[in-house]
């Protein structure tokens, strides 16, 4: 998995800031997020709701109503933040596909699913309607929908939730994009269906080599599928590393916190589940220092005053936490 770093770089996000104006002030949803995505790998962006992970994902395709405030998004070396809407349209669906959280509302209820899958092809590729239909049927088969010829003519309400998410995947992948962005793709589904969808992702990645960015708060999903993980908190990245590093060698108290709050898959059931107390800060008026200081067991004076710098643990693993500073006392001293 770690050899992903030597592969071709697809997407590079650097110091991305996204804000929304609201009546009560500006919400700084994303405050300096950086990560990169390599060909064929799966990157998970993890965090609580409201941490800015969905906004980050949607900003990659510029689907957010306000353009990024600052920072850059480079796709195969091309800067996306300065592209016009028209230029972005050529890219969406063709180079990057996206699927959303709720398959019940993400499909147009009055258009047949066949047409909804086909229209991306017709938009991006010089193809006759018949060819596009054939391609769409092929795609339905790939995502595991039985009897695709007949299903093409049906409407979304004739499909179950899990099936609809398969349709969404087919729709996002029909033009064979290099990147698939999945925004909480399993959250709205039953647990058993979740597993099927995750398996489908893996299968499709094997077959097509598509790179996947999966946005989720579900660590079970992450453990199963991710090569690398970004842990986001309050619009910033707390910790990034390979799946192994984040699960086993994490350095950030927040990562520790969320890992302790979910049941372990490795059978050790005696470890009690400990929720992370408190709530994330208000992004209208975010704290000056580390955004996690209010909920952190090891908070120091510096955490409240100054934002923690990036500390690189190795090539793939870095963390934003003052505990990594050599002047910081040991965790035992802090945790009293």
């Amino acid at each position: 998995m770690t050899e992903a770093t030597t592969k071709e770089l697809l997407l590079e996000v650097d110091d991305l800031h996204v804000s929304f104006p609201t009546k009560r002030g500006e919400v700084q949803a994303v405050r300096g997020v950086s990560f990169s995505l390599y060909k064929g790998e799966t990157l998970a962006i993890v965090g609580e709701s409201g941490c800015g992970k969905s906004v980050t994902a949607q900003s990659l395709m510029r689907l957010v109503s306000t353009p990024p405030k600052s920072g850059s998004i480079r796709y195969k070396g091309e800067e996306l933040t300065t592209k016009t809407e028209k230029q972005m349209q050529k890219l969406r669906g063709l180079e990057m596909g996206m699927i959303f959280q709720d398959p019940m509302t993400s499909l147009n209820p009055v258009i047949t699913v066949g047409e909804q899958i086909r229209e991306g092809l017709l938009r991006h590729q010089k193809m006759s309607k018949d060819e596009a239909t054939k391609e769409a049927i092929e795609m339905l088969r790939l995502v595991g929908i039985a009897d695709p010829d007949k299903r093409m003519k049906q409407y979304p309400h004739q499909f179950s939730g899990g099936m609809r998410q398969r349709l969404m995947i087919a729709m996002a992948l029909v033009c064979k994009p290099d990147i698939l962005i999945a925004d909480e793709p399993t959250t709205a589904l039953d647990v058993t269906i979740q597993a099927q969808i995750i398996e489908l992702f893996q299968e499709i990645q094997r077959k097509t080599g598509v790179a996947i960015i999966i946005i989720t708060h579900d660590l079970g999903v992450v453990a199963q599928i991710a090569d690398r993980i970004c842990v986001m908190y309050a619009g910033k990245i707390a910790e990034t590393g390979t799946s192994y590093e984040v699960f086993k060698e994490h350095r950030h108290p927040y990562t520790e916190g969320i890992l302790k709050s979910v049941p372990r898959m490795d059978g050790n059931r005696d470890v009690p589940l400990i929720p992370v107390p408190g709530t994330p800060p208000n992004l209208m008026n975010p704290p000056v220092g580390c955004p996690f200081y209010m909920r952190c067991d090891y908070a120091m004076k510096v955490c409240k005053e100054v934002a923690p710098p990036r500390t690189d643990c190795n090539e793939s693993h870095y963390v934003h936490c003052w505990l990594q500073d050599e002047r910081a006392p040991s965790i035992k001293q802090l945790h009293s």
Partner: peptide, 11 residues
């Protein structure tokens, strides 16, 4: 000197 535990009330 900022590398000292933050008092709970200031959290």
């Amino acid at each position: 000197e900022w590398f000292v535990p933050l008092p709970k009330e200031e959290q």
